[in-house]
Amino acid sequence: MKETLIVAGFGGQGVLSMGKILAYAGVVQGFEVSWMPAYGPEMRGGTANVTVILSDKPISSPIAHEFDSAIILNQQSMDKFEAQVKPGGVLIYDTNGITHHPTRTDIEIYTMDATEESARRNMARMFNTMVLGGYLAVRPVVKPESVVEGLRLSLPERAQSLIPANEKALQKGAELIKK
C-alpha cells in the first residue's frame, strides 16, 4: 500500500493540520509516513499545501510529481494540481470559489460543499476534518478509529475537548461527498 496525497488551498483553511491528522492516523496503523509542507510567510491567506505519503515500505522521496489523490480547496491549487493527479486517481474539491471546474476524464472527481456546510452548522473550524471525512469515505486508507487517535495525538491540549465535535464533522464529510 502506498498513498501519495496532496492537500492544497489557502493558509488558514487547516490544510496542514488535515495532513497532520492523517499522518498521525498512519503512524497509529504502523505505516511509514511523511508530511511535507509548502507555504508562504503568511499566517492566513497565501497558498499552502502539504504532501502526505502513507506506505507499508520506507518512503524514499517526500517530494512527488504525481499524486494518487488530491484535495483541492481553491482555484490556484486547482490550476496547479489537476494535471498532477495520476490517471485513475482521485480529485476531491470544495466547489466554493471554484470558477474553472476540473475537466479531466481519466480520474475520479468528487465534490464537497464543506465550506458552506461547515459555516451553516456553525462549525467552520472543523471544515478541514469534514473534508478529511469525505476523502476517507472514498479512499479508506486508514480506519476511522485511527483518525480519532490521530486527532488525539495531533491536537494541542486546549483543543482535546473538540474531538467529539470533530468526529461528527468526519461523519458529516462522509455524507457530504458526491461524484
Binding site: 511509514e32 509516513v33 511523511s34 508530511w35 511535507m36 509542507p37 518512503i59 517526500p62
Partner: peptide, 9 residues
C-alpha cells in the same frame, strides 16, 4: 528547509 520542516517517524 525540506528536512527541517517535514515530519517523519
Amino acid at each position: 528547509g525540506i528536512i527541517g520542516q517535514m515530519m517523519e517517524k
